[in-house]
Design a protein around this nucleic acid. Structure first.
Lengths: 339, 339
DNA sequence: TGACACGATCGAAACGTTTAGATTAGCGTT
DNA sequence: AACGCTAATCTAAACGTTTCGATCGTGTCA
């Protein structure tokens, strides 16, 4: 900017005024300045601007895994929304690791991001401290964090799983295997509650041997399913509480020589774009990713626009059970077995 | 830092020296400073530091779509690599739009990113100008850019498609539909060359009616396949040059009442994590995403480590044909038809 | 004609760091 | 006792902006 000012024989203040439109500058000088800008190829240094203004027009976004299609879709929507609003997005993947997450959030705050969207991981204690000491708005995505009182967008997970399990029960299933991630994040907790609630509502027992834990990855779903299928009285249906693990479940079913839905019914949380096309067409709980992404972005953009003092807002969206052909009525299975 | 200095009764220079270890500071002052840092909860302002140092420890990454599993995987690997190296990643999705891409790259450069990874879009002319005027290292990912002489990581696309089409020909297919994206990006150009080459090597004609263009999205694959299937003499196999479009192709096949591989064989570029599990199990060209991501990151990290003057390096990796069950020997098809 | 308002422009401080060079103190040498 | 050397510390400039308040013509009005 100094060079531009010199070339146009004006002060830097005038150049700044013209660029930002913060004061009127005469047509004559305007033209000289614009010419100089073109000649020199001047670009405003956003870092210096950020330092002076105290705002970076950048937000931080942390998600557990970007390869999980749910997060991929949501990240994509969020990225577009902030792009439209002239913000850049710094993306971090925490890989479901607490320390990584804390490091990354600190990194983002050091860089003076104007806001933060966090699909958190693990225990919320440190997060709570960070969020409270940071003086930027934070939106929690997908996962609530007890004790952290801030804007949040989540799904009604309990209800969604309740519906899915109830559907299986209505089909005649009585022993339903359940593969879950660890309970330290709220969706896993709430989904499990939906499982329990559905069984209890149908007067069925919640059997510990039917509930298996994994660490969200495909391999965990594989191992969990192997265990479920080697049970003495094996389940007739399996529900996976997330989407990568169901791939593992399907591999286990294949490797053990069974097939879905003939031998075992399968449903899971989170939809795939190809669910309609490949066999078996999975019955899933579909999350409104577009809405989730947009609402999350809007909550943060609203805070960034200055609405800092409004009380925390919590948005709860509804999932939708997408019934396809991966679950069979148990009557039919029983018949074919007895036949 | 000023407050810390005051609280510890030292100068800011000493605080800076201690924090960065750029000079020895006495145990006594060290302790006072560290205490003050803890008391105040001081965090170094990375923006001010960047302004002074001329480096942000941030890189920019632009990809056409983050929802394309290929880019998702690569982005994930790159993100991890830079995370380990202490860099933040600014992610931008260009949505295959040239103007969006140019805007985003300019945005990233204004923010003084230390380096750039670009999976480019459209015509490379503007990109060329931007890259040359930017004085940061740039690595081209997945797509070369004629005229832009910089580090590049690509797949041997022509060879990969040659292998895939040759495989189909060996199965007995003679009329092979080909769905491609526009040729302004090098992979589409090279893949098409592989298609031609394979046909010519087998003495088969390249028929225009069998080649359909789309804009990379699922819906384009759908439309293209609809056109191919309504041809008077319809193809016995279809190859999709990217991965979202094959989903559309499968939907078209289903909607028209055909099935794969019984009625039509299908193969495509880019693997899915679930290809092994769902039916039909797609035969695909698998890219070594881990290696691509790592090599790309390494090239840039090497430049960032100071190796600026080495000549541009171009890495070409090999794809791998994953043969599954979505392609049928044409003999068998012919028999079942004639039977 | 002098006072005044107004529009255009500029000078300089500030944002929070890093760092070159100056200063100071302590200590051994001669 | 004077000197020089080293280690520790500090002063102040610089990075590239924004912005407050000052300055300076110019035209208007009493």
């Amino acid at each position: 900017m100094l060079h531009v000012a010199e070339a146009a024989r004006v002060s830097v203040a005038t150049v700044s005024a013209l660029i930002n439109g913060t004061a009127t500058v005469s047509p004559e000088l305007s033209q000289r300045i614009e010419q100089a800008i073109r000649d020199i190829g001047y670009k405003r240094n956003a870092i210096a601007r950020s330092l002076k203004m105290g705002t970076t027009r950048t937000i931080g976004l942390t998600v557990p895994h970007i390869t999980n299609p749910f997060f991929t879709d949501v990240v994509s929507v969020i990225q577009q929304a902030f792009d439209r609003a002239g913000y850049a997005v710094m993306l971090c993947c925490t890989d479901e690791d607490l320390n990584t997450q804390d490091d990354q959030i600190r990194l983002l705050l050091d860089r003076m991001v104007d806001g933060l969207i966090v699909a958190r991981v693990g225990d919320g204690a440190i997060l709570k401290g960070i969020v409270e000491s940071a003086n930027v708005p934070v939106v929690l995505l997908d996962r609530v964090c007890e004790g952290v009182d801030t804007d949040t967008v989540v799904l009604d997970n309990q209800r969604a799983v309740f519906d899915a399990i109830t559907y299986l029960i209505d089909l005649g299933h009585r022993r339903i295997g359940y593969i879950t991630g660890t309970f330290d994040i709220s969706p896993m907790h709430d989904r499990m509650a939906g499982y329990r609630e559905a069984l209890q509502a149908a007067g069925l027992p919640v059997e510990n041997e039917l509930v298996r834990f994994g660490n969200f990855h495909e391999v965990d779903g594989y191992n969990a399913t192997m265990q479920l299928l080697s049970l003495h009285d094996r389940p007739s249906a399996i529900f996976s509480a997330n989407n990568p693990m169901v791939i593992g479940a399907m591999k286990a079913i294949r490797d053990i020589g069974l097939s879905c839905p003939q031998d075992i019914s399968v449903a899971c949380f989170d939809d795939f774009p190809w669910s309609d096309v490949f066999q078996p067409q999975l019955t899933t709980v579909s999350q409104p990713v577009q809405a989730i992404g947009e609402q999350t972005a809007n909550l943060l953009l609203d805070r960034l626009a200055g609405n800092r003092d409004a009380p925390p807002r919590k948005l709860t969206l509804k999932g939708r059970l997408m019934i396809r052909n991966s679950c069979r009525p148990l009557g039919a299975v029983a018949q074919s077995v007895s036949a």
